[in-house]
Simulated assay, not measured.
Amino acid sequence: MTTSPARSPRLLIVSAALLAVVGVALLGVPHSQEPPAPETSSTVTADQSSAASAPPADKSTAAASVSTTLAASTPSVLESALPPHGEGVAGDRAVQQSLEAAWPSDLPAADERQLLTAGRALLRADATGVGRTKWPDVFPDSDQAVAPAFATVRFRIQAANARRDGSSSKAVVHLVWAGTDRGGTYTDLRITDLFFTRSIKKGEPTWTPQPRI
């Protein structure tokens, strides 16, 4: 029969003393060293409420900023300033104003009128096929039957202007338009640029369209 050895009283006393020292050390740890408590939902809610209560930006300042940007605009700014798609005829005035702001006038009134008349007719001929015979240099196959890319129904030029293109003998007509393609999809706010060169024919200045590449 095997018996376990008797425990020494001195060992028990030393163990008890060590446990007492450890307990005192733990009680003496300052609260500042304890890990921070996790952020509660009430704290998050308070932060969100503070952000929501911040005063909005001054509307007049925002409007002035938009106006300044549009005055020194580029085609990308023009697109951002256009009214929403589907606005219809009611939005055409805003489209024209945006176009004028994007490209300030720099041509004589007579030249601009001639370019706008030619540009509108050329765009209609290109999109719908109507009147292509008037532009044999632009549409060399105008004597052949060609299915138009867009239907004449609902085709509409929403806005247009004519401006110089680097020199007094070159010009570009900017057009914004709407139309229904062969698949029956109607899309507005399409942007097309048509380029012209100035020449003198029979003593009169004439703007000739350049073939589209």
Rank of each mutant, 00 (worst) to 15 (best):
S105K: 13
D143F: 03
S76T: 13
P56T: 05
L19V: 14
Q97E: 15
W103C: 03
A102R: 00
V176T: 12
A81N: 08
K59R: 11
S49A: 15
P30H: 08
H85P: 05
D137S: 11
E87G: 15
R93T: 12
V146R: 11
A110P: 03
T128A: 08
S42V: 10
P140D: 03
A118M: 07
R93W: 07
L70F: 03
E34P: 00
T74P: 01
Q96H: 12
P83I: 05
W177I: 09
L122D: 02
L107R: 10
G184S: 09
K59Q: 09
L11T: 09
P209S: 11
D47Q: 13
V24L: 15
R182T: 11
P36V: 09
A162W: 06
W103A: 07
A151S: 15
A127W: 00
A147H: 11
Q97H: 10
T180A: 08
G86M: 02
G131H: 04
G88T: 02
F155V: 09
T74S: 08
F139L: 01
H31D: 12
S67K: 15
V89T: 05
S50L: 06
T43P: 00
G179Q: 07
A160V: 02
W207D: 07
L189A: 02
G129P: 10
Q48A: 14
G28A: 10
D181N: 15
A71K: 15
R198H: 11
M1F: 08
R212Q: 10
A147L: 13
R212I: 06
T133H: 01
P108E: 11
R10M: 09
H174K: 08
H85W: 06
G166L: 04
E79W: 00
H174G: 07
Y186I: 03
I200Q: 13
D58C: 14
L175I: 11
V22S: 14
F155R: 06
A102P: 00
D106C: 10
A37F: 06
L11P: 01
I200T: 15
A62M: 14
L122A: 04
W135V: 03
G91R: 09
A118D: 05
V21F: 12
T2Y: 11
A52L: 08
D143C: 02
R154N: 08
A71N: 12
T152S: 13
Q48R: 13
D58K: 15
V29R: 12
T208A: 10
A102M: 01
G88H: 04
R113I: 12
A102S: 09
P104Q: 05
R113P: 01
G86Y: 02
D47A: 13
M1Q: 09
G203C: 07
A110R: 10
A81S: 15
A54M: 07
S49Q: 14
P136Q: 05
T68D: 01
